[in-house]
Design a binder for these strands. Structure first.
Length: 990
DNA sequence: TGCCTCACG
DNA sequence: GACGTACGTGAGGCAC
């Protein structure tokens, strides 16, 4: 393997070998069959980042050592392993520093709580009776290379326990690697995946690509991908450098020619020496049985209970008395502070049986229930309908549930629930057949013809409504529902304005947002230990599903009464927690009051120009057909352009275009960034694909779908807002989603133009300017940012000016763009990778920007650290208004999951705070408009924007009210600014 | 049903 | 000296 350069690297500069580099004299060990070489410090870093924080009873951090011991135990148990040693770095400077003084120069200090763990792994190795090897002047990697060579020369084989990519060059027949965390063997395939070349060419690739963590320079502008391509083409580095003049791309050619020497130095740095003086005979690395008198007391001192148990069983108790750990034990640190739900509440008051439920078949029974409910002061209720769309669904039945005793008596052991069937019909038609008729006919009542006759012994709809109305509107009776907005919508179409209400879904969201979902089935299982009857159990599923009015009444009762019953019991658990967990204000002043506001927005809907959408759709279809023909022509065969799988095969397997990335599942990635790169490289096919993708998306997701969503009765589109969908407190919009209507491209804006105002009206758009950045300046308390906002300055320009030291006046737009990307990155929990991708720059440059940013705004870094610490300690973060966002993975054992949760933790108070602010504005707006005698209606919310429909003559006044209310929705240490626009359509209002 | 892709803030 | 990458959503089409 190692060719000419094995001897090249500055033989004279290396410390003089103390012994010959060949195999030293034999010790007392046996010959090697299989040698395991553990990269000790490499493993320690891996384990440190992979495991959640742990401490010894005396407070010493211990997670990495624990991981190390677990790994050692596994290898010692492995019968394949007959020899094992741990290799360590002896010091920080090595012969490589003489070749290149900046080698590993930019390496940051290890994390604070890892440092005390370094000496402990030496102790650990000793306790487990494993030899430790190190050599002054060389890195552990060189020693590993040398021992690997010796093992193979002796006729044995070797496994290097490490995932350090720098060691991959050593893989060859007889030598492989093992990822110590994933317990996965790494062979030539893993090398090919990582470097795109065979193991013997790894050093050449690394020499070209360089390595920022080790500060290996490489050739600027060449990364691993390009390097692999070049090496595979030219065979090796030296040939490539000599023939660099043949390279077509001018930039690449120039880079290689001017940096040839840098590449050669880099190669010396990355190439591992396998001829260093081995400090011990590898035969002496034979696996030895640990001494229980050494191992057990040591494990005891660390508090590794599972390992103590394992080795006590295998080795027997320690026989010699041992000195106890010298340090005084401290109480262990808590790492899992999330409070479970109170145990007393984990069980239902009484087991669920249908015997608790009854049917309300006549007026007398209903009167009795209404009277009881009124006396109780709190009633859970739920309505069943024949469709999901609350704007059109017909009422099929109502269920009620009561606690025994006056309201507030949540500890009552008795409860009752009942179902009032109203519009059940004889079985017959399926849902699909039914939907056909529903379009032309009005309510459920008129659909009595055909096979579905109304069943007997049900109260008439009018009677039921008339009797329920006083109860549902009684200000002295609290109506509890699960997602009660839905029920309010249904009843409002029958002239009933339900109130006051509580919503178990919202209570759960306010208390436990981010911990879990808030659907009834999940809540019942989690808090009541009860599996609810599923809708599909009573109504069937798929094509055979029937609407609820076709479900037999007895069966319907079991399902429906259970819903009310469960709702009431959930309420009994959640409501007391509200005050206890200090979430009353959030619930009472933000979430609950928002219900009727959203309801009226959903009912209002927005007018859509259907003919325009249809024209657009036809136009898109025509162009899609043309594009498809062109694409097939270029590709040389027909295939489904909408199939990423087929497309990937065409591009990368058949046409062999460069730059293919694989996704997690191994499929070719064909997303926009990949296609754009190919397009920039001059390939014609990706350009057409991108265009096709865009049009197909617009047609499929918007033009066609929106026309389908038009409500036959109102001629408008009615979305529905979900209050508990986003953990941060944002709303979500579905059926259709009106929060992602295109706006960024020209073609897309044509769709937005189809959202229009009623005759004599205009659309008014009011949106918060930079609300999340303002919140950041506020919560992190950054003086200069706050002042800039107070002055009304261009915040991205100010950031750029302060970071790069350039004046705002006459600023290069590119500089401002970078600052803008960084500002957004900060809000998202910045990473060099993300920023690099966003700006299309290299990661080192991105890292540099981030460092500059934090240098200028250290307060923001402090804020981020504080936020993460808080999240780790409490399991949630909070917005300035008190909303809690739980981060269930913040102390996860996976480093990836923790990093993810940390970024979310940084983002959540900002995104959630912005959501709180606009919700506060939305709650005040209806009354403010009314007070100003304005008819304007609020139609849509898109996170930081509100859209109103306004009569022409009221535009100026409405604009003023909207701005005043929105800007006054929160009192922060920075001003809130709202920008408005007016137009005949939504695009024009921007 | 899971995955990929892409529309929005 | 490793890992996976910006935060939060919903919807449509494909492949299984």
């Amino acid at each position: 393997m190692a060719k000419s350069k094995a001897s090249a690297p500055a033989a004279g500069t290396a410390p003089a070998p103390a012994q010959p580099a060949s195999k030293p004299k034999t010790g007392d060990g046996s010959p090697i069959r299989h040698l395991y070489l553990v990269d000790g410090s490499g493993y320690l870093f891996r384990a440190y980042h992979a495991l959640p924080p742990m401490t010894r009873p005396d407070g010493t951090p211990i997670n990495a050592v624990y991981g190390f011991c677990r790994m050692l135990a596994i290898h010692l148990d492995d019968p394949e392993v007959d020899h094992i040693a741990m290799i360590l770095d002896a010091g920080r400077t090595t012969f490589r520093n003489q070749i290149y003084d900046k080698y590993k120069a930019n390496r940051p200090e290890p994390p604070e709580d890892l440092i005390p763990q370094f000496p402990l792994i030496r102790e650990a190795a000793k306790a487990f009776n494993v030899t430790v090897c190190e050599l002054e002047g060389y890195e552990a990697d060189d020693l590993i290379a040398t021992y690997a060579r010796l093992a193979v020369e002796e006729g044995g084989s070797c496994t290097i326990v490490s995932s350090d990519k720098d060691l991959m060059q050593l893989i060859r027949p007889g030598v492989d690697m093992m990822d110590p965390i994933k317990q996965k063997k790494l062979g030539p395939e893993a090398v090919m995946e990582k470097f795109g070349v065979t193991p013997d060419k790894v050093v050449d690739v690394q020499a070209l690509a360089g390595d920022s963590t080790d500060n290996v320079p490489g050739v600027p502008g060449i990364g691993v991908k390009t390097a692999a391509q070049l090496i595979n083409e030219y065979g090796d580095l030296e040939t490539l450098l000599q023939r660099a003049g043949e390279i077509k791309q001018p930039k690449r050619r120039e880079a290689l020619q001017t940096n040839a020497e840098l590449a050669r130095i880099s190669k010396q740095l990355v190439h591992l020496r396998d001829d260093v003086p081995a400090p011990a005979d590898p035969d002496t690395f034979d696996k030895k049985r640990p001494d229980p008198n050494v191992l057990l007391p040591w494990l005891e001192q660390q508090g590794f209970k599972s390992l103590i148990a394992k080795y006590t069983k295998e080795l027997g108790e320690a026989t010699a008395p041992v000195a106890p750990a010298a340090t005084a034990p401290l109480p262990p640190k808590k790492t899992e502070p999330m409070k479970p739900a109170p145990a007393a509440h984990a069980k239902p008051n009484r087991p669920f049986t249908t015997a608790d439920y009854e049917l309300i078949r006549d007026e007398a029974a209903l009167d009795e229930w209404i009277s009881e409910a009124t006396k109780a002061g709190v009633v859970a209720f739920d309505c069943e309908t024949d469709a999901l769309d609350s704007n059109n669904a017909g009422l099929v039945g109502v269920s009620l549930a009561l606690l025994d005793g006056p309201w507030g008596n949540v500890n009552s052991t008795r409860r009752r629930a009942a179902y009032l069937p109203i519009s059940h019909r004889a079985p017959g038609g399926t849902k699909k057949a039914e939907a056909q008729g529903a379009l032309d006919l009005g309510g459920a009542d008129e659909r009595a013809d055909g096979d579905g006759k109304l069943l007997p012994d049900q109260l008439a709809l009018e009677t039921a409504i008339a009797k329920l109305k006083p109860l549902l509107e009684d200000p002295g009776v609290l109506k509890v529902g699960q997602n009660i907005k839905y029920d309010m919508c249904v009843f409002e179409r029958h002239g009933v304005r339900i109130g006051p209400v509580d919503d178990t879904m919202l209570l759960s969201f306010v208390l436990d947002g981010g911990k879990h979902g808030h659907g009834m089935d999940e809540l019942a299982e989690r808090y009541l230990d009860h599996k609810t009857i599923k809708f599909s159990d009573v109504a069937g599923s798929g094509a055979k599903q029937v609407s609820f009015d076709r479900v037999p009444i007895e069966r319907a009762m079991e399902y429906a009464a259970e819903d009310a019953d469960v709702t009431l019991q959930l309420w009994a658990q959640f409501k007391p927690r509200l005050a206890h967990e200090r979430m009353v204000t959030m619930y009472e002043t933000i979430e609950r009051p928002l219900i009727p506001v959203l309801l009226s927005m959903e009912q209002a809907g927005i007018k859509v120009d259907a003919p325009a959408l249809k024209r657009l759709s036809a136009d898109f279809e025509k162009r899609l057909g043309e594009l498809e023909r062109e694409i097939h022509k270029i590709a040389g065969r027909e295939f489904n352009v909408s199939s990423p799988k087929q497309l990937g095969e065409i591009l990368f397997d058949e046409q062999k275009l460069p730059g293919g990335k694989r996704s997690k599942t191994g499929a070719w990635s064909t997303d926009a960034s990949v296609l754009e790169e190919l397009a920039n490289a001059g390939h014609p096919l990706p350009v057409k694909i991108l265009e096709h993708r865009q049009l197909a998306k617009l047609k499929g997701t918007y033009t066609d779908a929106l026309v389908r969503e038009l409500d036959a009765k109102t001629g408008r589109v009615h979305t529905s807002y979900h209050m508990t969908g986003a953990a941060t407190g944002r709303l979500a919009s579905t059926d259709p989603n009106l929060q992602n209507i295109p706006v960024r491209t020209e073609e897309g804006r044509k769709i937005r133009e189809a959202f229009i105002a009623e005759k004599g009206h205009k659309l008014l758009s009011a949106d918060y300017s930079q609300i999340e950045l303002r919140l950041l300046a506020h919560v992190a308390d950054i003086g200069s940012l706050k002042e800039a906002f107070a002055r009304g300055d261009d915040i991205h320009a100010i950031t750029a000016s302060e970071m790069f030291g350039v004046p705002v006046k006459g600023m290069d737009p590119l500089v401002r763009r970078r600052a803008k990307a960084i500002n957004f990155g900060i809000i998202y929990g910045i990473s060099a990778f993300g920023l690099a991708a966003q700006l299309g720059i290299g990661q080192p440059e991105a890292r540099d920007y981030i460092a500059k940013y934090f240098q200028r705004y250290p307060g923001i870094r402090d804020y981020m650290e504080r936020t993460k610490d808080f999240a780790r300690k409490h399991g949630f973060v909070q917005t300035p208004f008190g909303r809690k966002i739980h981060l269930k993975f913040i102390n996860d054992k996976s480093q990836g999951m923790r990093a993810f949760a940390e970024r979310a933790a940084i983002n959540a108070p900002l995104q959630g705070g912005a959501a709180d602010i606009i919700k506060r504005a939305m709650i005040r707006l209806p009354q403010a408009l009314k007070d100003a005698h304005l008819e304007a209606r609020m139609l849509l919310q898109v996170h930081d924007e509100l859209l109103f429909e306004v009569a022409d003559q009221e535009i100026d006044k409405t604009k003023e009210v909207a701005r005043t209310v929105m800007e006054g929705a929160a009192k922060l240490s920075v001003p809130l600014v709202v920008e408005t626009g007016v137009g005949l359509n939504w695009a024009a209002a921007h």
